[in-house]
Nucleic acid binder design. Structure first.
Length: 236
DNA sequence: CCCTGATTCGC
DNA sequence: GCGAATCAGG
């Protein structure tokens, strides 16, 4: 197999999408995991959390070979660098935790117990609670418990496409020109769309138009209906 | 052992 | 440029 533009593009998408080299190699087919990694590095899209790279300062891997015919294990990593303080600027912490009004500061006076729980919680009595916007629990009519403060807001980080759909046609990739025939089932991690070039004038490619549009046969001569999108058994 | 990515080096 | 072999951490 050779690295065609399509394959390189798919490799790049999946690699940046977070797919592992094995997944990519498996998806592309005809190449090994090592080939994918090698190609990825050659393409310059390196830098991804490597399990083996926790240790920084590789100190330049000793270029084994050539002059030293040491059979194996040329690992003279002696190089004791005693002093390397490395101030480590540390990423600027984003703190906005206190920026909103906390209705019930749990951290109370240093002396008292923080929010003593009800002495005898009525275990048998079913409590009706509901969740309001923001995640706090609404109180029932008879509730005397202090309202539970909402969980501290988490920093929202843009979701990365899951490795399973990396390189595949997602909902956001749909437009008028590509086939929107669903592949797999919604909710499944690898759900995506066909993505082929559309049959002009139709929402699907030629092949899937063949599935979607079938000649109406006279009554009595009907064949069992073809599997519908989203409905029937898995169709791929 | 399995997995991962990184690197080397003969081709 | 390619990728198997190898290394090394989880």
């Amino acid at each position: 197999m050779s690295w065609t533009d399509e394959r390189i593009e798919k490799l790049t998408k999946m690699w940046e999408g977070g797919a592992t080299a094995s997944q990519i190699a498996d998806e592309l087919g005809g190449v090994s995991r090592n080939a994918v990694i090698g190609k990825a590095h050659r393409l310059g899209l390196k830098a991804r959390p490597s399990p083996v790279k926790a240790n920084e300062k590789p100190a330049v891997r000793p270029a084994a070979a050539a002059a030293a015919p040491t059979p194996k294990k040329p690992k003279p990593v002696v190089e004791a660098r005693p002093a390397a303080p490395d101030p480590e600027p540390e990423e600027p912490r984003i703190e906005e935790e206190e920026s909103f009004d906390d209705p019930t500061p749990v951290r109370a006076a240093p002396s008292a117990e923080p929010v003593p729980p009800p002495a005898a919680p009525p275990v048998d009595q079913p409590r009706i609670v509901s969740v309001g916007p923001g995640g706090f629990l609404r109180q029932g009519p008879g509730d005397q418990q202090q309202p539970i403060p909402p969980a501290p807001p988490r920093r929202l980080v843009p979701a990365k496409p899951s490795p399973e759909v990396a390189g595949k046609t997602s909902l956001l990739d749909l437009n008028d020109r590509i086939c929107r025939w669903p592949m797999g089932h919604p909710g499944e991690p690898d759900f995506h769309f066909c993505g082929e070039k559309v049959n002009p004038g139709f929402p699907y490619c030629v092949e899937h138009c063949g599935r979607a549009y079938q000649a109406q046969l006279p009554r009595g001569a009907r064949r069992p209906p073809p599997p519908l999108p989203f409905g029937g058994p898995r169709v791929r």
